[in-house]
Structure formats: C-alpha cells, structure tokens
Design a protein around this nucleic acid. Sequence first.
RNA 1: GGGCCCUUAGCUCAAUGGGUAGAGCUGCGGACUUUUAAUCCGUAGGUUCCGGGUUCGAGCCCCGGGGGGCCCA
Length: 579
Amino acid sequence: MTEQQLDDWVSRLADEVIADAKSRGIKVVCASGISPSGPIHLGNLREVMTPHLVADEVRRRGIDCEHIISWDDYDRFRKVPRGIEGVDDSWAEHIGKPLTAVPPPRGSDASSWAEHFRRQLEGALADLGIRYRGISQTQQYTSGAYADQVIFAMSQRSEIDKVLDQYRTLQRADAPKPQQKLDADQEAAAAEAAEGSGAATEDDGATTSGYFPYKPFCTVCNTDFTTVTAYNDATAELTYTCRCGHTETVDLHTFHHGKLVWKVDWPMRWAYEKVVFEPSGVDHQSPGSSYVVGKQLAPIFGWERPIGPMYAFVGIKGMAKMSSSKGGVPIPAEALQIMEPPLLRWLYARRRPNQAFDVAFDAEIQRMYDEWDALARKVSQGAGQAGDVAAWTRAISTADGELPQTAYPVAYRTLASIVDITTGDEDQTLRIVRQLDPADPAPGLDALRPRLDCVEHWVATRMAPEDRTVVRTAPDEQALAGADREALRILLDGNGKDLSRIEDDWSLDGLTHQVYGVPKVQRGLAADQIVKGDKELSAAQRAFFKQLYQLLIGKDTGPRLPTLLLAIGPERVRTLLGG
RNA sequence: GGGCCCUUAGCUCAAUGGGUAGAGCUGCGGACUUUUAAUCCGUAGGUUCCGGGUUCGAGCCCCGGGGGGCCCA
C-alpha cells in the first residue's frame, strides 16, 4: 500500500509544486513563516503543517525537497498580548523593538520573547515528526546576509512604491463614508483591528520624506520608531531620525540593524530562498495584502510568487473556563498533552486547507478518537476510500518513518471513564483494562501508552465537572432510608442460596452476576436464570441500578456498575450502601 | 463598498480532473441472561441553497441571486 501513490489534496499540490520546480530547474523548497510574537497557537500550526505535508509527499516520491521555517523574530514587538503568565503592562516599554530584543515572560529561561515562544512550538514540531530547517530572521538580517537585497530594494523603491500605491489610492477611493456612529463594541473592535497584527495595516514604508522600504532599529533605543530622512543611492548611506531624538547616518553595506518592511521583506525572501510553495492565512486574501502585493513585487527581485493556497482558520472546541482565565488559545504543546501526535497530524491532513475545522478539547475528543480508531480498523482491513487512506498514512508516518503509536489502543472514552472512576490508580486501571477483552488482555499499562497518558491528562484538566464521577465519602442517610433495603442486603450479603456475600467473588464477572441477580431473586427467579424479553424485570433492574448510582455517586447514571464497584472497593461499598 | 472561502442526509463530512450522490455519528429496529453501553447486525433518511446557461450527461464548469464565515477599507 505504501508503494502506491497517495491520492488526496496533498498529493495534487505536490504534483503542482514538483512540476513548477522542474520547469524552473530548481529544488523543491516549501516554506513556512512564523512570527513568535506571542503563543503560537493551533491556527498557526497550519502554517507549518501545510508545507510539511506537501514537502513530505515530495520526499515520499524520492524527490529532493526542503522545508524551511522562517522565524520572523526580527519583527517589531507590536503590543503586549493579554493573559500570558509572567507578563504585565510593563512590557509595553519594549514596543517597537525586535522580538529577539524583548525579555521573555518572567520565569522563562529563554533568552528573549521570540525564543520563548519559538521553543514552545519547536518541541511540538519534534513530537509531530516535522523535519525542517529553521531560519532566524534576526540572524539573517544582523549578519548582513540580506545586505545586497536591502540595498537593491532601496534602489527599486520608486518601483515598489508604485505597486503599493495602487492599493493605497484604490482603498481611499473605494472607502465608503462612515455614515453612522460606531457603537462601543464596534469601536473597540476597530481599535483592536487597527492595533493588531494584520499584514495590510502594517506600515509599508511611506514617509513624508519619500518612500523607503527599509526601516532601521535605532541604535540608541533599539526601537523602530525611526524615520528615514535621506538616502544616497550611490553610497548606500542612509540617514534616519528616531523618536528618542537620535539621528544618525549609516552605510547599508555595513549597517545591519534594521529590516525591510514586511510587504517587501516577504517577496525578497521568496527570491532569496527560492521558495516554490508557501501557503498563507485567509487574512491575506484581500486586495492590498502582502500576498497579493507580493505577486507584483516578487518579479522585481527576479522571482515569482510561490504556489500558495489560502488556509482557513482552526477553531477550538470546548474551552473550559480554566483556559479563559488563563488567557490564551491553546498551543500545539497543550493539544499534544491530550492527543497523540498522529491524531493531531490527522486533523490537519484530512481537511483541505480552505476548510476550517475545530480541534476539540472537550468531550468531543472522544468522538474524534472513535473516528480515528474506526479509520485505523478500516485501513488495516484494506478498506477505506483513497482520501481516507492518504490522511491516515500521513498521520501515522512521514517519509522518515512511522511515528510512535499506542500498541494496545483502548477507546479513548473507555479509558477516560476508567481513569475517572479509578482516579488514576494504576493497579485498578490495569485490572479493569485486562477485563475488557479476556481473549486478548492488555499485556500491561505500558502497552496503553502514550494514549493513556493523554487520557489521564484530559481527565485531570479538561473533563467537565458534571461528567466526573465523584464517589460519596459518606453514606447519604436520607436516600438510604428511602431505599429498597432488602435489595441492598441481598446485594451485599446474598440470599443464602444462589447469591453469596458480595466479597466472595470480587471480580468483574462476579459483580456482574451479583448486581443482575438481585432483581431476579427478588422476583423469585434463580440468580443465573436466563430471562428473555421480560419488560418488568428490565424496569426493576433499571430502578435498582439507579438507586445504587444515587447511593454511590449521587447521580442517576454512571459507569457500568461492576466496574464502578470494583473501583470503589468492598469496604467503601458496604459503608455507602448501609452495611 | 471591495475581496476570499463555504453551502450535499438531523449533525460532521465524502464523491479518483463532468458519468445513477456515499460514509460516520444520531435516529429507528433487532440480537446478546450484561443498564441509560465499552458489543454486534440491520435499516431509514437528500429537489446536492435557489434561478438560469454550457453539455448526450452537472454536486462538480459558467453567469446571477440567497444564506453563512473571514479579511480589508
């Protein structure tokens, strides 16, 4: 099956990319650009996963290919993100500095803001089996790697300005007059939008003294609140002034303390790295966005805009209050605490880039896992449609080999329910798990990992309180008083005939026999008598079970009783059931 | 005001470069002495958002419109 070429959206993009690289006589280079300006969330992961999947498909076909990740860590620190632990308003003093010159959140041992957030992602990328070459833009710019490109861009500034100006005037001409007052919400949203990232809102380099696509960071205060006031094309000497009062003339041949504005920086790098494939988010779809403008700017640098689908946003389903108080949207590392790498890969591989999807952190994750397990079963039987098989293959493996998988996969929801009632007790967990399939019992808990670790983390941090099973610590005397005491006595002590004391066979099977036997002997039947289609008996069983759940955990329903009893233990069961 | 994406069964989505619309979940029915399930089998369910056009043939391509999402101004 691995011999056969996969057939899905990734494969079709790879066809395109390979053909393009071939026609230009170059190696396939797929690129991602990540700005470590704050937590790099699951939406940003699409920026990495999409080129990764394409690059990986190219490699699977035995064609040389590279995936680069440009860390845009020389971007300016725009604003202080809210809700990040160890960060407060005092970080505002760093606004305008390169991200690598901003201190990391308190408590981090990273060397800078950029490194702190970059490292969080790097760990997850390793777990996900993503192979790439990381390129720090700080490193590139400050080393002078782009010096020629910077000087070239400056020499082409009127050309560049002309392109950018099309959109500037277009936007003004088409802008409708504001006809109604904005309400408070709209105003706040507008302010947020104006202040926020948004490639198109970025300063494109226009100043009152002319257009310059390069912006220096001030050598005194290290911010980019600078204005270029003069430039000499013959000598590459540039003069700037800064908000802080500093003024200086520098030679761009040797001065490497600034960067091209984003809309110019991007096309320059396409050319510099010979990028053939680089997707972008839907925020680049509007006219005047860097991706649209880049199509016209790339030729100036002797390149053409790479193939680049727009990818839709990734939503998060079921963020409990804990995360909202904690502030941000979850990052890949957090997702990997509750789901295995192949599952996360699958979520990104199964949907085409233009489809939005959600990553579930709530109980929906159980359904996701059910689907995943069903897919694995289907594929192992040789069934499944082309797209399904492709997504599954991309999820569990890369061109470099297979990712670690759980040897003995038990359904996520089953494990969740077991971990919930055993509160993580390993002996009990193992005992219950081994009962699941007596014909092929789990060899040990290690065979259940890493999925079990994910489940334990999910139960501990994400399971909804109302779904949790909380065993009573003391008997509910009132409920006990109204209970069917005879039934409880038979359950605990037997009926002196075919049901014995509950402790006598304290096993899953024994307890099953016991709990189902009680309503039968109460009705004069043998405890193990086979009864078919007796509606009354069914009703009696249900009522009896409901009573037990109430006495044990204060709810009408819960985990299967034998399992629950096993987890609670005989002494506590006797206490809670009155004797 | 402009742009991009989406619109298929109750829900989530498929449909190898036009060729009789399929899965999963849910629902319903049944089996299993084993719940309100952690099993298995069966089954129902669609005017493919609407209107035109191209074609022998359109879920798919073209035009117009509706609805939803997002971006920009």
